[in-house]
Amino acid sequence: MPERRSRVRAQPILFCKNGLMDSSAQVDPRRHSRDTWIVIPLYNEESVIGRVVAELREHFDHIVCIDDGSTDGSIAAAEAAGARVLRHPVNLGQGAALQTGFEYVRTQPDARYIVTFDADGQHRIEDAMLMLDLAERDDVAIVFGSRFLDDRTNPGWVKRVVLKTAVWVTNRTTGLELTDAHNGLRVIRTDAASRITLEQDRMAHATEIVLKLGRTGLPWREFPVELLYTDYSKSKGQSVLNSVNILVDLLVK
């Protein structure tokens, strides 16, 4: 079983390095626009969310931002850029926002895929497109983005150690064999999304989502993605101390 997975895992890398990505300019950039809903948890990202949504709009029709009680102009910025914004009346956490997004997309009859995307602009749309290609081509229900499948991303050693520990914990608890944890870029087919309910409101949802998606028994893949560590995303990023919170949230229910 692990052998099969690692072979599968290697495929997407070839897929990129063979230059297929360069030729994707000729492929329709809006090939996934109709049946894909982008779900973005949004909390106080006024300065970047507009650009992120505007870029996504070039490829997708449906962008849903779940505003988690922002106190800045995030809602207006996202709406101006063309996103559908759902508003939590109070701040609940990123996991809660994702679950709200899933439940909203469930009511959309045309939706086939959900892409979870971070609001701070650290994901690449090209990666999301290729992940959707993979989900369609191989008929898999879940594609996890991983920053550790190739060497494009350099998170720095502290973050690497923390993340690798998180990966280890996640793999122990979920029984899956992932190379990355807490990567916000995922493709989830709607049938998989409707089979899970995230109960971890805060950051521990990233482990919970792997656990629950794994339990559905639906086919999944990992795909190499690059995370753009801008100064902005770094300043917003998870502090190392927060991993303590995540661990406690997972253990005490």
């Binding site: 779940i66 759902l86 939590h88 609940l92 809660a96 439940e103 009511t107 409101d201 005490v252």
Partner: peptide
């Protein structure tokens, strides 16, 4: 924790009802 879970459900219902 349990109280928070209830608040989450409540807030989500409000959000989805408003969206609908």
């Amino acid at each position: 924790v349990q109280l928070n879970r209830r608040i989450t459900h409540l807030a989500r219902e409000i959000t989805l009802a408003r969206a609908q």
